[in-house]
Computed example of a mutant assay.
Amino acid sequence: MGTEIETAVEQVEIASSWKQLDVTDMSSHAKVVAFDLDNTLARSKMRMTDHMASLLSRLTNEITVAIVSGGRFEQFRDQVLAALDDSTDKSHLHLMPTSGTRYYRWENDAWSCVYAHDLSEDDRRNAIESLTRHAHELNLWEDRTWGPQIEDRGSQITFSALGQLAPVDAKDAWDPDNSRKNALAAAVRLDLPHLQVRSGGSTSVDISAKGIDKAYAVRKLGAILGVDVSEMIFVGDRMDPQGNDYPAAQAGTMPVRVSNPDETVEFVDTLLRTLDRS
């Protein structure tokens, strides 16, 4: 991977609500609109609503669209692709699962994996051990779970405190101020200084190769598409400095903070109206 991986370090100010932004001005400069998945396009592990799917399908006919999320490709398939209608221009849709450690695009009537940056067997084993040990030490290892708490995604190890299939209400209540998963990430980071350890979704911590996060993803996508990162809008619910959407803002995208998929619907609807007038 060499020198193409960069680590963003600058702090950026992000509007607390998308309604404070000049969407018309953003759309006049944008060539790509990128989205987080869980709690941005859809509730955690749930399929997009029909309304969101309709808007996203329309958006692919107006501008290039990307989805960058910590989830596996299978989540993209079940939560997003299965909901899109036949009007979707799949050639304008780019998928970057596991925080950009993998990249898929539509080729020859199928989704093709262009690259995958998998962790070594030793790194995956050490990441699982560290997450398990520190989760117990911090009293974050829950007895009642819905599915596995640790998932080996090849290019990413993900800890989900309540399991991958936990109901949304339980996830929302587990760590409302993000302090619990931030504490776990900080402890694991000391064990694995050569890896990227970041607080992920509502109950998760993600571990991947150093320097591969959503900043890397948007830079890589920009290079592939011949688009400057400053010409990308990035929409996400975790735009706080410890959140996994924040690196995309640090990389120089036009950041849009949303609190939930309902706000994303409002933003995309507004964006589409401005694009229709351009």
Rank of each mutant, 00 (worst) to 15 (best):
Q149N: 14
E6F: 12
A215S: 15
S278M: 06
E62P: 00
I207A: 02
P167M: 08
D262M: 11
M26R: 04
A185S: 12
D109S: 13
L138G: 14
D206W: 01
V218Q: 02
I157H: 00
A53R: 03
K19N: 02
E231V: 05
L95E: 05
Q250F: 03
S259V: 09
Q79D: 01
S208N: 10
L271D: 02
A215Q: 11
E4K: 12
R124T: 14
A186Y: 07
N39E: 12
P247G: 06
A15E: 09
L59D: 06
F35K: 04
A173K: 15
C113M: 15
C113G: 04
A170L: 14
G222H: 12
G211Q: 00
A217V: 10
D206V: 04
R257H: 15
D269Y: 12
A42I: 09
G201W: 02
L55N: 00
V235K: 02
Q75C: 07
T145V: 15
E4P: 03
E10C: 07
D206F: 02
S69M: 06
G211L: 02
Y104W: 15
E231T: 02
L119C: 06
A135G: 05
M254E: 12
I212G: 02
S120N: 04
E13C: 11
R257I: 13
N126L: 14
L81N: 01
L221G: 01
F159T: 06
N244A: 13
T98D: 02
A82H: 11
T253N: 08
D206Y: 00
D25A: 15
S202M: 14
G71I: 03
R72I: 09
T158Q: 09
K45I: 05
A223Q: 13
P241K: 06
F73H: 04
S278G: 11
Q20V: 03
T145L: 04
Q242A: 15
D122M: 11
V33W: 03
V197Q: 03
N178Q: 11
E263N: 00
